[in-house]
Each structure stands twice: as C-alpha cells, then as structure tokens.
Simulated scan of single mutants.
Amino acid sequence: MLQEFLDWAYARHTNTLSWYIRPLFVLPLAYFAWRRSWKGIALTIVALLTSMFWFPPPQQVDPQVQAFLDMEKELILNIGELSPLYLLSVLAVVGSLTALCLAFWRRSLGWGLVIINLIAVLKVAWSISEGGDSGWAVLLPAAVGLLLCDLAIIWAARRLHLPISLRRPRTATGPGS
C-alpha cells in the first residue's frame, strides 16, 4: 500500500508545474514568519511537502526531468546508506528554511532576500552537482520562482514603506526617540 502511494506520488512529481509553484511557497512562509504565526508556518511547510503531487502525471515526461528525478529517488531509496553529502543536503534544506523564517521573524527584508537568493543558487548548484546534465532541468523553475519571490517582496516593501536592509530595524529606546 505504501509503495502504491509512493508510485502514485512519484508519477505526479514528474509534472513540472509543481516545480514552478514550489519556490513560490517562500512567499507565504515569509509572510507567516513576519506575522510570527507558527500555525501558518506549519501549514505552509505541509503544503510545500505535498505540492509535489498536486498535479496529474504529465502525458509525456521530459527525459532530463525523468533522469533528475531518478537520481533523487535513488538518493532517497538509499537512505540507509547515509553519505555525509546526503546528510549535509538534508541539514542545508532544514537550515535554510529555518534561516528564512528567522530573517522574516526578525523583520529583516534584506536578510530574507539574501537567504531566498542563496537557497535558489544552492538548489541549482546541488542539482547540477548531483544530477549532472539532468540537474539543469531545475534551473528555469528555480529562476522563475526566484524572480517572482524577489519582485513580490520588493513590491510589498515599497508599498508598505518598509526598508530593505541588512541591518536590524531600530526600536525606540525612550522618550523623544
């Protein structure tokens, strides 16, 4: 039964529409971190983890996409043989999402943008490093997602008159401050 579910989910993961929407989960994640909503952050993480099988399987799978997903599947299936690189990759994902939430929790749009851009660059670099030529399949969805996230955050900052800075926002310290 578990294998049937995994096969069902994997077939849907080959639909690259999910590859394009997944980076956009950065926006609600940032929003809920800014609002300091643990519930919103948790729901966004659940949505992010399930989004890979929201779409139907494609009629035809790009061979580069298939090769990349086969590489990822092989890594996951060999989880018993945890290599240091695999463990580092998992820690990098958890750490980067934690850093992203922390940046917005602390109201730093500048650091949030730095982390978003770093996540996208590292995702592409890891994909090419681990997947070889098939890793390039990640480039366009990551670039589109990055561009949309950056533009949305910059637009919101300008609309709400929020500074985009790497410095911590000042707080009033007393009368007349």
Rank of each mutant, 00 (worst) to 15 (best):
W8S: 03
A120D: 11
E4I: 06
L122Q: 12
L2S: 05
T14H: 13
L82S: 15
F5Y: 13
I79S: 13
S83K: 15
L17C: 06
L147G: 15
S83D: 12
V46F: 14
S18H: 10
L162S: 01
A9M: 05
S89L: 01
L87E: 12
N15W: 10
Q66V: 00
V124P: 09
P57S: 06
L77E: 12
Q66F: 03
K123R: 15
D133W: 10
R158K: 15
L27C: 00
T50V: 06
L2R: 11
R106N: 10
L166R: 11
L102W: 11
F55I: 06
L151N: 07
R170E: 10
A99W: 11
F55C: 05
L122G: 14
R12D: 03
S108I: 05
A11N: 12
F53L: 01
T173E: 14
L113C: 02
R12I: 03
G145D: 00
G112I: 01
V46L: 05
F104H: 03
V90A: 07
A125S: 09
L109R: 12
F25Y: 07
F25P: 02
S37M: 04
S165P: 02
R35Y: 13
E81W: 14
I41W: 08
W19L: 13
E72P: 07
L88K: 03
T44A: 03
G80T: 04
I154R: 10
L29T: 00
L160H: 13
W111R: 04
E72R: 13
G135S: 04
Y20N: 04
L69H: 15
K73C: 02
L147T: 09
I119C: 06
F55V: 08
L91D: 07
W19T: 04
T16M: 13
A172Y: 12
T98R: 10
I119M: 13
S89N: 07
G176A: 04
K123M: 15
L140F: 09
V138C: 03
Q60G: 08
A30R: 00
R22G: 01
A103S: 08
A103M: 08
S96W: 09
T98W: 11
H13S: 07
L88I: 04
G176N: 09
P28S: 03
L147F: 11
N117L: 11
M52E: 11
K73D: 14
V114S: 09
I41F: 08
L87A: 08
R12C: 00
M1V: 10
A172I: 10
W8G: 01
W19Q: 15
D133P: 08
S165Y: 02
A67F: 02
D62T: 03
I79F: 14
L17K: 08
G80D: 11
G95P: 09
G95A: 03
K39F: 15
H161N: 12
L85G: 07
R168E: 11
N15E: 01
V61K: 05
A99F: 11
L148N: 09
T44Y: 04
L91S: 01
R22W: 02
W54F: 12
R158D: 12
P175G: 05
V144L: 08
G131W: 00
I21E: 04
T16Q: 06
S108T: 12
I116F: 11
G174P: 01
V65N: 00
S134D: 00
A172P: 15
P28R: 04
L102F: 05
S96E: 07
W155R: 11
I116R: 06
S37H: 12
T171L: 10
L97W: 13
G132L: 01
T50Y: 13
